[in-house]
Design a protein around this nucleic acid. Structure first.
Lengths: 339, 339
DNA sequence: CTGAAAGCGCTAACAC
DNA sequence: GTGTTAGCGCTTTCAG
């Protein structure tokens, strides 16, 4: 590989001039340098540059699962902003394992200028570890509970859940079930709280047996729905707190032969690209997924670019209810105790 | 940040000993060094190490679209192997744009020890560029047409397509339509060829109007299906050459009120996690997606680890037909010219 | 097994 | 606007 010295020699200038030319600064001998670079096929050694500058021109993104459509979309948003900023992305997949998440934070922190973390569960040492990190961090969907306050991009979990529950209430449902995620996670906690609050606001009884805390996974939603269906007194509607749990719930309902929305109405949190292709099309709370990734990246890149002084900000994105076919009016004979 | 010098001083040894300890080599003063590392919170400077060793301990992965479930699964497979090897992943999303793909190849090649490329379209300069790259490259789903032969992980496109078409033929279908991808891509070409071959083998007439070459996108499949439905003499079955085009086709069928499989049978290439939740559940050709990513990573990491001598290999993964509800027997009155 | 020291390729003072 | 040069932090000869 040709080095900057080779280019300098070929162009008859100093390495400093080549370096300046590379940095876009005006140089008299720009033409000669450009020619030399071209002829030699010169490409700067990034490691040397990074060592010298103490920067990486790269950011890290840590998600629980790339194959979850939401996180895939999030990554896409980060990519868009990163590309525009000329920054590369190091991707970490934690497999929903706090230990792996921590390991990834440690590894990526040595190779990047900042990290975007979308945690599923807020356990382990990550909170303290992040506090020790001397680099910009942006959290996605995570309340700040760390010593060090960091930037965050949140989604309106309470509002979204309210939208969903009020929609069901307006359809006449009273026995509304909730399939939630771990209360150790921000989305899990906020959507759970939103559910309880909205139910109470509308004077709807919250039957504890209809509130199932699962794990944000497809299998969790599946098992939770089966459990709900076994209840003496079944729900006439169910709100599932994330995309894949909703899918799991639908699978369970399919297995027991329940008809949606005739036997039970279903609303999910987070849209799916194929939601309209499901039968019936799925009613969901939709958030701007790609935008959330882009917003996180923008926040991070601002910090990386030197804005380290201003206080941490928290951006909350709005959601909307998309009513499709999986929700319908409560049947008059619904909610009857089958005992 | 503490440097290796600080650690050496604190432990009362030379930097060489610390470096050896870090590399796992036996050192008498290992305990003292470990203690110093711990107390100082020392973390090696990766850029310095990379500069010195000329390696990156990182590989690049370039995909057309992270949000496509297939590529997301592919990335997951790569991640698994990369983690096991202690190697990081730089992710590039080309947005299905050859120019961006090329740019990414250039950027990632300066920051990684090898690259996995899953191209959608084989255009532009990528072929020649890759030939110039002096680093290991693994192609996913791409025939080798470059000067420099590289390792490849293929999927049995011909076999998979044959399975799909023979399944439809066995159900009595004769007017079988094909929605394909660009013939400038390997999957596009091979699935197209597989379709034509299998049709001929079974003495089925290939109506040119029922062979639509789209773009591997949801909208492409959607538009193609609409066009097919407008045909004077409609197909009774359709094979769509990738996952999202299949989804697009289903959407189009939904829009025109066609019933699947009563009015038309549908088979797709590549499974979807939610395929069983579609109504009817989708019949597909399934490939081991995560495994394909893992295989690509293994191939690449072997080369990175020094096996640069042995000739390029091509691994082809087997596929299977998963019959679900979207395919059914051809109706007796099907295929009648409605003119 | 250990230490001294060179040097990877680059950028950024600094002096002109 | 340009050249000289120090040095980022690490690994790896080389000599002992």
């Amino acid at each position: 590989m040709a080095t900057i010295q080779d280019v300098a020699a070929a162009a008859g200038v100093s390495t400093a001039s080549v370096s300046r030319h590379l940095a876009g600064q005006p140089v008299r001998t720009a033409d000669a340098i450009a020619r030399a670079i071209d002829e030699l096929g010169y490409q700067p050694n990034i490691s040397a540059r990074n060592l010298r500058t103490g920067r990486h021109a790269a950011i890290g993104v840590i998600v629980p699962d790339v194959t979850n459509p939401f996180f895939a979309a999030l990554i896409k948003g980060v990519q868009q902003e990163a590309r525009a900023a000329g920054v590369q992305i190091l991707l970490g997949n934690s497999d929903e394992d706090p230990a792996q998440e921590n390991a990834l934070i440690g590894e990526l922190s040595q190779r990047t200028d900042g990290i975007i973390i979308a945690p599923l569960v807020e356990e382990g040492r990550s909170a303290t570890d992040v506090a020790r990190l001397r680099m910009p961090v942006v959290f996605v969907d995570r309340e700040s509970r760390e010593r060090r306050e960091v930037d965050r991009v949140m989604v309106d979990n309470l509002g979204g859940t309210r939208l969903a529950v009020e929609h069901l209430a307006a359809l006449g449902h009273t026995r509304i079930a909730f399939i939630g995620g771990p209360l150790t996670s921000t989305p899990g906690r906020q959507r759970h709280a939103g559910f309880l609050d909205t139910m109470r606001e509308h004077d709807l009884m919250v039957d504890e047996r209809l509130v199932v805390i699962a794990d944000f996974r497809e299998s969790g939603g599946h098992d939770a729905m089966h459990a709900l269906w076994r209840e003496q007194s079944r729900p006439t509607a169910v709100f599932a707190a994330n995309n894949v749990m909703t899918l799991g719930a639908l699978r369970a309902l399919d297995e027991v032969g329940a008809r949606v929305p005739d036997d039970i109405s279903v609303v999910g949190f987070d849209d799916l690209s194929f939601a309209t292709l499901l039968r019936p099309p799925l009613t969901v709370v939709r958030r701007p997924e790609v935008e959330q990734g882009a917003a996180a990246a923008r926040l991070l890149l601002d910090r990386v670019d030197g804005d380290t002084g201003s206080p941490p900000v928290s951006v909350t994105l709005a959601v909307e209810l998309v009513v499709r076919g999986s929700t319908g009016v409560a049947r008059p004979d619904d909610g009857i105790d089958r005992g």
